[in-house]
Nucleic acid binder design. Structure first.
Lengths: 260, 260
DNA sequence: CGGTACGTTGACCCCATTCAAAGGGGGTGG
DNA sequence: CCACCCCCTTTGAATGGGGTCAACGTACCG
């Protein structure tokens, strides 16, 4: 949607990307391997994949770069591939019977996209920004899981992480007032997105989402989202530098605890 | 809460239950083993546990019967055990900062209770009815997973099932009108609870939930839930035989599709 | 300079919340 | 067996916040 120049540039070579290629942008030269953004089930062991397994995993997939707005999968479609996001942001969503789009989750680097049931995608997914992702054929991916105990454990932990985050989303939606929901979302984004430190604990956040995306995630109308921003600004939680750039102010003392 | 006589009766022997004992109520004499309520990831293979593994699993846990209302785990507490529900209904919930209870999910026979992160419970859980459940020590359970590939696969599928259901819950909460949310919940309960067939496609449902439970799950006030029942009754979706006994009427043609 | 997509603001209405009060319904104790 | 009580549920009236529709503002781009 934005960053049009980026899109244009890559659209023609949207196919496989040489492993080293991607690192040219942002990487420090190290090759990027599949990874999981995940908290472990038990404290002692962190169930992240070790580098050997990540290398093996990389062999069964292909690294691809896709422009913003790319539809990645459709609800009900036969699931041919599973994505491991390396860079960028993806939204998964469903269309209600009235044709309204309900965003179920945002995905960040280290996430897996491609929840499936009986071989079919459960949700639709779409890149919100230009993305880089490993693409694994579903069958090969699942076979790999079965053959590598320890890997399966890591992905089990990841599924649990996703579950916790879905529950968090439900808690967000259970909030009655629009500005409360928005505050929770902004807090979530602050943890996931790169932030620029401001003075005195304030941070500046560049939102990769349009108002419509936020509305569809929070179960609100775009107008309500807009007013919620206004209200949070009045109450001193933030300042809108531009519609897409927010400065989160520090005085959230009592409300920090509120963000269960 | 209800079925007091049952509670009393078992309260004293709330500890371990002999395997054969439980089958006396409802079972056909066959011993009840751990099981998973779950749809497979791929169509061809159903990832349910085979009987041999279920038997092995049974050995590392104990079958227990607990009265309605029993607190099963507390948010943030060190996770000592994981439950596999055999009979009855459990709710998991969290308390918001204002002290309001938000029910995150209802659990039915074949479900696992005990989502954990870094060795601690993520949510609180409480039996809504008298329950029978396998209780597994967390450590032993996870060890068992690691030692039995194929079991881990089944539990991965189960985690994905829970994730889909959490997303379904989010879709419920995203509905704007109370009667829409309630209708979705009733449809969910119809699929999970035993129903008595009425005439012409109507089914009678005995709700194991109080209005407060429904309200906390749907993000509404009890009054709104009550009015939502009234509205669904007016619109011909159901009849309230008693506050806890609902007859779901069949004419849901167009709305059946609406229950995405 | 016009166009388009995005964002904001205003007016009005509807519905859920809230507070209040009044019905059940089951269990306990007299 | 009845009376009482407690909890659950329902109903009513007033309030407020979000949906909707409409219009305006804005930025980017051709």
């Amino acid at each position: 949607m934005d960053e049009k120049e980026d899109e244009k540039e890559k659209e023609k070579k949207e196919g496989e990307v040489d492993r080293g290629d991607v690192t040219g942008k942002g990487g420090v030269g190290a090759m990027r391997l599949p990874s999981l953004r995940c908290a472990p089930l038990l404290e002692e062991k962190d169930s992240l994949l070790d580098e050997r397994l990540r290398r093996r995993l990389a062999e069964i997939g292909t690294l691809r770069r896709l422009p913003a707005g790319t539809p990645l999968q459709e609800e009900g479609e036969k699931a041919v591939s599973i994505l491991n996001l390396v860079e960028g942001i993806v939204a998964t969503y469903r269309l209600s019977d009235e044709g309204e789009r309900r965003i179920l989750s945002f995905h960040f680097p280290g996430d897996l996209i491609g929840l499936l049931e009986k071989g079919r995608y459960v949700n639709s997914a779409r890149a919100l920004t230009p993305i880089v992702a490993y693409v694994f054929p579903t069958a090969a991916f699942l076979r790999f899981l079965g053959e590598h105990p320890g890997v399966e454990e890591a992905f089990l932990a990841k599924a649990h992480q996703d579950l916790r985050e879905a529950e968090q989303h439900a808690l967000m939606l259970a909030r009655r007032e629009a500005h409360e929901r928005l505050l929770l979302l902004l807090d979530l984004l602050r943890k996931r997105l790169p932030v620029k430190e401001g003075e005195g604990g304030a941070v500046v956040l560049d939102l990769p989402l349009r108002r419509a995306d936020i509305a569809d995630y929070l179960g609100l109308s775009v107008e309500a989202v807009s007013r919620a921003f206004g209200r949070l600004e009045e109450e001193g939680y933030l300042r809108l530098l531009t519609p897409r750039r927010v400065e989160l102010l520090p005085l959230s003392k009592e409300r920090v605890a509120a963000l269960a």
